[in-house]
């Protein structure tokens, strides 16, 4: 009986009930349809204002499962979720690095998101679900990159690339409050980067300012001058990447 209740509580319907009635809410569900999957965050890239982005990722299949000849697929999108390009990397080391600049993105100066999915066609295991949380570094005006790690789960694909899905981050009927646990005093400028991790339009507010984001779209919001930030949204996991500046010095971290 106990295991049946547990199974129900972890099902999509069970998670939805828990989230809407506030009973052991689960902002992120890892219930996915297939057993051989690669899950990705929506990582931020920036090429605006003299920014360069460095992406560092692990060959998870090679390191943990000793699977040779696997590959990764990187998918790049604009802030409006328009597809830019796909890059496939076949030769993987245990740790790998990609420089994302205007040249890589066909001259685009701006910001947006990208995803990483691992690829392997031959699976002999019963269950193989991996996620590359990775590290993204931001170099401003040629400075040393400031790194932040991945933040959440946004999209997933089967390892053979034939199936995909999203909406691991959940929403509730009522609003959720997220107060950033750091002060913004003493910076010359501060920006918050948000991505909509769901396939539905989301609404959120920061103080009196109201914002909307369509499916998987992203936005950079200047919050300079504000000391304390509270985000209100029905989306249950809307945690920004924070950029704090003191003149030309930069610090990036997840909020």
């Amino acid at each position: 009986m106990k295991s049946l209740i547990k199974k129900f509580a972890r099902s999509d319907f069970g998670v939805s009930l828990r989230n809407n009635f506030g009973v052991r809410p689960s902002p992120i569900s890892t219930n996915i349809k297939f057993k051989f999957a690669s899950i990705s965050d929506a990582f931020l890239w920036r090429t605006d204002n003299d920014y360069k982005t460095t992406f560092k990722y692990t060959d998870i299949l090679g390191l943990f499962y000793k699977i040779e000849n696997s590959s990764v697929e990187l998918l790049f999108y604009t802030k409006d979720n328009s597809f830019i390009k796909k890059i496939i990397v076949n030769q993987l080391n245990y740790s790998n690095e990609l420089l994302i600049n205007k040249d890589l993105l066909d001259g685009i100066e701006g910001y947006g998101t990208f995803y990483i999915f691992h690829r392997n066609d031959n699976n002999s295991k019963d269950d193989l679900v991996i996620t590359n949380q990775c590290y993204v570094g931001f170099s401003y005006k040629g400075s040393l990159s400031s790194f932040a790690h991945g933040n959440t789960y946004v999209r997933f694909q089967s390892l053979d690339g034939k199936h995909n899905g999203s909406d691991m981050v959940k929403s509730s009927f009522s609003n959720n409050l997220y107060r950033i646990q750091n002060s913004f005093v003493n910076f010359t400028k501060s920006e918050l980067f948000f991505v909509n991790p769901t396939s539905k339009k989301i609404y959120f507010s920061i103080g009196a300012a109201k914002h909307t984001l369509e499916e998987n779209c992203s936005i950079l919001i200047d919050i300079s001058g504000k000391d304390d930030i509270t985000i209100i949204s029905r989306c249950m996991f809307l945690r920004p990447i924070i950029f704090n500046y003191k003149d030309d010095f930069l610090d990036v971290y997840h909020g």
């Binding site: 679900v129 991996i130 590290y135 570094g137 400075s143």
Partner: peptide, 17 residues
């Protein structure tokens, strides 16, 4: 004069199986 500080993930965070 620039600095970057970050922790690496524990290995079990890469796997959900």
């Amino acid at each position: 004069n620039h600095i970057s500080l970050e922790h690496t993930h524990p290995p079990h965070e890469y796997i959900l199986s």
